[in-house]
């Protein structure tokens, strides 16, 4: 049914951009060999075609998926896009083609490819975003609650509603170092913005903030029961890669030498 597959699509890396790729491949009856972000493009023997992102086309496709297949499939596509899966774009476009021919039952057939790989990536994303609901730590910088995280998947869209509805009175800023995105929230509304590649330097937190951090470290240090020590169990629930951004595992003298100096002055 496909006319050709010796082509590479190049898109801008956004979700709408990917949907436009899917729309293009359906209209032209092509199955692209690969779909790559414009930044990741490498010279190739295949023909490359740049797919322009058009919001109208993307929305139309989403509406069509929702009406003709199901809401779950639409959501699944979005989640798969947020996951950390390598080469997910190509698989998602394959999946969309398949979903149109097989209908809503496609999600039940989890052992067939590419659904199985995508599904595993989605589960991984959902698990990680659940963990981050607990593992995010805010630092109070003069009324703005700031947090830095290093997730593997893009979890921000999945934890947005949770944090926005939990702290409607606070100003929140959660910075995703891996994907250079940030969640901004104010007055019960939140949005996600893209940031540049450079790291953000924060200024020194205030005295009360340091006091609360100290209290928390004290509490954390005390509640463990020595007779039951079981670090393997701790490691499986709280893998070490999450710990660098969590207050209880930080020694503030080591982490924020600048902040200490300024305080001492």
């Amino acid at each position: 049914m496909y006319y050709r597959s010796d082509i590479i699509y190049v898109y801008d890396g956004s979700f709408y951009g990917l949907l436009c790729c899917a729309a293009e491949s359906m209209v032209k009856k092509e199955q692209p060999f690969r779909i790559v972000k414009e930044n990741d493009m490498l010279p190739s023997i295949f023909e490359c075609r740049r797919i322009e992102t058009c919001e109208a086309i993307a929305r139309k496709l989403l509406l069509s998926i929702e009406r003709n297949i199901s809401l779950h499939v639409k959501r699944f596509i979005y989640l798969a896009f947020l996951s950390q899966l390598e080469d997910r774009e190509t698989m998602i476009v394959d999946f969309i083609h398949m979903a149109y021919s097989r209908g809503r039952q496609i999600l039940e057939d989890r052992t067939a490819e590419p659904i199985h790989t995508l599904w595993k990536a989605v589960v991984n994303l959902q698990n990680e975003s659940h963990l981050f609901k607990g593992f995010v730590r805010f630092t109070d910088y003069g009324g703005v609650m700031v947090s830095e995280i290093e997730p593997k998947n893009s979890v921000l869209p999945l934890i947005k509603d949770h944090f926005v509805s939990r702290y409607p009175r606070e100003l929140l800023f959660i910075y995703d170092k891996t994907h250079h995105q940030a969640l901004l929230a104010k007055c019960g509304k939140g949005r996600i913005i893209a940031l540049g590649d450079e790291d953000i330097d924060f200024f020194a937190p205030e005295e009360t903030e340091l006091k609360f951090q100290e209290l928390w470290r004290c509490f954390y240090g005390i509640v463990s029961i020595e007779e039951r020590r079981n670090e393997a169990c701790q490691n499986s629930h709280l893998p070490k890669r999450y710990r660098s951004s969590m207050t209880e595992f930080q020694d503030h003298r080591r982490i924020q030498p600048k902040a200490r100096q300024e305080l001492n002055r």
């Binding site: 659940h130 609901k133 607990g134 593992f135 949770h162 509805s165 939990r166 702290y167 409607p168 009175r169 606070e170 509490f219 954390y220 509640v223 463990s224 029961i225 020595e226 039951r228 020590r229 079981n230 670090e231 393997a232 169990c233 701790q234 629930h237 709280l238 969590m246 209880e248």
Partner: peptide, 29 residues
Amino acid sequence: NAGGGIGSTRSYGICHSFTPDGRCVSLLK
């Protein structure tokens, strides 16, 4: 949900940390 205040609860529960004995820290006990 928070309403106009601060805080929310989720029926699935959320763990915030784990101590070296492998137990979860969810509440200020």
